[in-house]
Design a binder for these strands. Structure first.
Lengths: 176, 176
DNA sequence: GATGGATTTGCAAATGGATTGCATCTTCGG
DNA sequence: CCGAAGATGCAATCCATTTGCAAATCCATC
């Protein structure tokens, strides 16, 4: 860790997680493979950035399932470790796939103006959490880290709106 | 930065910010020095950890001012740079003093079980954000970083409840 | 295949943080 | 001391998220 992103634009990740894996995991907890759950996972698979529940709901379109179902499903998937939760500080949870085969730890760089999201792998020095554990007596230490800035495009055109085209977040945020 | 906390228990910081400073800043923006604002700042001064608006409201007790006023005041203080906003991932904003004389950048280590908060100064390697800016073309990069773990006390007594004694957050959170 | 029971879903209502409109009250420069 | 700008209280509202409950769906088993 600690070295910055190897490429300017990090390649989008379109995970093809084998259904069998999901099936096995669900079975193991006497949970069921339902239409909504598969549809939701499909949506997550086809997007490379974290989505809000509302965005997922919107993306589902016709095969519409209830928002409450999406909320419940995300809880389930979180518990099962199939998704990861991201917090961009705007009061709305976002979720991205955390495929079991490649549970790659990473963070995000979010444009304060247009909300575009770039996935990065820069991270904390690995020994830092161990030091914290030692000094404060805490165990099971994990961290949340996100970066905010102004993307090159918004630096150029300070009036452009959400090019990410993702619903669910109106204007710029109020983060420092 | 990057070196961990110099002490096991970071000394609580009870800032005595000169009122004159506040006065000057408020005047400079044609804002007024009101009872509620002073009371809110007093509450923040007497607490060493970030507080939710509800906690502030509760702490105000008799000199009760409306919750809405607290929300508005925090916006104002944020804009003025007198407070800093913290996000512990539970959907509630927290605020701590960011005294102008010592706008020390720091982060928090939060116990997942009892919510106790420890202030730490471990941080990212300084060049990391510069690298990000360079590689992704972003400018004005800042970061949000928080640590979660299980405090020594909760490791011992897995049933203890909120020893911090702070209202506003019921049980443990659902963070990874 | 058909079936029963546990799990899920849809719907609607409720919860909780945060924001806002508006009339009234305060603060503070003059 | 006065008046206007700015603040506050109150109530209504917004939005993300959660929850109760009856109906629908899965799936292990027959």
């Amino acid at each position: 860790m600690n070295q910055p992103c190897p490429q300017h634009a990090h390649p989008r990740r379109l995970v093809q997680q084998p259904l069998s894996d999901l099936t096995a995991r669900l079975r193991a907890q006497s949970r069921k493979i339902t239409g909504p759950r598969q549809a939701i996972l499909d949506v997550l698979r086809s997007h490379a950035i974290p989505l809000t529940n509302r965005q997922i709901h919107h993306a589902l379109g016709k095969s519409d399932c209830d928002l409450a179902t999406i909320y419940r499903t995300m809880h389930t998937l979180l518990e099962m470790g199939l998704v990861r939760r991201c917090d961009f500080g705007d009061g709305t949870a976002r979720f991205e796939l955390s495929d079991a085969d490649d549970p790659r730890h990473h963070h995000h760089l979010v444009c304060r103006v247009c909300n575009i999201v770039v996935e990065i792998d820069a991270c904390l020095p690995p020994q830092l959490e161990a030091d914290l554990a030692l000094r404060h007596g805490f165990s099971q230490i994990a961290h949340h880290l996100q970066f905010f800035g102004v993307c090159p495009r918004c630096k150029e055109h300070p009036d452009a709106a959400d090019p990410a085209g993702l619903p669910g977040r109106p204007g710029p945020r109020r983060e420092p």
